[in-house]
Each structure stands twice: as structure tokens, then as C-alpha cells.
Amino acid sequence: MEIFIQILINSIVSGLLLMLVAYGFSLIFRTNKVFHIAHGGVYVASVYFLIFIHSYCQNLFILHEILLWGISIILTILFVSLLALLIELLVYRPLYKKQASEIISLITSLGLYIVIVNMIALLFGNETQMINNEVKESYFISDIIITHGQQVQFLFAIICLLVLAVPVNISRIGKKLQAVADNQEIASVIGINVKKMRLIAIIIGSLLAASGALLKAYDVGIDPHMGMSITLSAVVVVILAGKNSFWTLLITAILISTIQNFTEWFLSAQWKEGITYLILIIILLFRTEGIMSYKLRIENR
């Protein structure tokens, strides 16, 4: 019994982290109409940048540890925003101007992913990186353990969702983003600045992924190639959820990570991805209409 509760707690924490990435992916997919595999590149890049800038600042001035981290995190936020900005301006906006198909955007994004990941490998090597090396105390309820890392992850994931994702859902900008997601032409006709909304979406989306990555790296190590698998898990969440509602995405993210954790426990960690994508392929093959706007007129197919 304890083991079930333990896995459930782990799943909620890792589900929240997955939610951060998935919500960002969903936002970009719907607004920018790009199947943003390079999301995984941004995910990893944020961690490497934070570690780099932290050790750089450490050598520069003598600061209190908390202040040092604070500065590093602010710089990382700036870095990720800049990266997202560049990606949109240099790579995705030309696609938007050319009205490129989804499949072209997928290929472009794969190319971008290759570039980012190998750029990281070039600059920092392929070794696993960790943000927090100390072992801190865990919290026990009888046999159930909630590690220090999990406590931090849980708390900050909720804060990040409240700060980044929830406003997108309720504010006026959120309405505009939704309008762009529904139909870019109509949105621009009714006076919404589509280009600006696309920028906002990719920046917020990337910050969400970055927050997921930093929290993950707080507990376990991260290497340059990890971004792909987390992005694909996020894809599964987005497609399984079907719609862009916050709660549906959150519940689906927790569901997927529960399945992953149970698989890990009862089979092995190596089956985790296989099972996740088995779910994806089954949904794609047998529930297609629900997910995509495929209800075209016959002649337009």
C-alpha cells in the first residue's frame, strides 16, 4: 500500500514538471503552429546556461549564495527569452510568412533541435550536469519519503504555473492568444497583432519549459540529449488531452507520469518511453478525429 502512495506522490511531483513543459509546448503548437521539437533543446539549454552563469558569477564577485542564485536565475530567464525570440524571428517567422505546412515546420524544428543540442555539447561536453549536489534531509510520513528535491520541485512548479501558465489562461492576452490559435487570419483582421502574440507565446512557452528543466536538474542530473524524450512525453500529454484547457492538461500530465512511474517500478526504467509512446500510437490510430481538426470537406482532403 505504502508503495502505491509513494509512487502516486512521485507522480504528482513529476507530473507537475511534465505539465510545465507540456503547457509550453501546447501554447507554442497552437499559437505558432509549429511542432516545436526544439522545445527540448531550449529545455536543456536553460540548465547549462544557469550552471555556466552561476560558476561565472561565483568567480567574479563574492556574494551571498542566495543572491548569487537569484542573479543567475534572472540572467537565465533573460537568456531563455532571448533564445526564444531568436528562434521565432530567425526560424519560425519565415515559415509563417510562407504559410509553410505543419510537416515543413516539423522538419525545421528537428533541424533546430540538432543545432541547439550539438551547440551545447560543443560548449559544455556531453557530461551529465546537476544544479544541486548536496543531499538535504527528506520528510517522512511513516514509510513514505518526500525528498527535499521533491518538496522544492512541488512548491516551485506550482509557483511557476501560477505565474506563467494561469495568466495565459485568464488575462486579456490569453484571449488574444486563443484568437490567434483559433484562426490567424481572423485574428489579424480584428486587429490583433499576430506577430506579437506569436512572440509572446514562444517566450512564455520556453520559460515554462526552462522552469521545468531547472526544477528537474535540481534533483537529478541532466545531459544534452534529455530534451527529446521529455518533449515527446509532453507531446503525448498535449495530444491525449486534446484541448487546450489548463485542468485537462494538468490531469493528463499527472496521468502520464503516473503511468511512467508505475512502469518504472514494475517493469524497468527502460520500458518507460516504450509504454508512453504505445499510448500515443494507440490514441493516434484509433481516436484521430477527436484530436485534430481533420474534419475537412471531402474535396479539400
Binding site: F35, Y277, L278, L280, I281, L284
Partner: peptide, 14 residues
């Protein structure tokens, strides 16, 4: 299109 590509990626991973 996209969903075919995606499903083949899933197939690859499985």
C-alpha cells in the same frame, strides 16, 4: 502528414 510522422516516431521508440 504531421500525425503520420509523429506515429512513426512513436513506432521507432517502441
Amino acid at each position: 502528414d504531421l500525425y503520420f510522422a509523429l506515429a512513426t516516431m512513436a513506432f521507432q521508440i517502441i
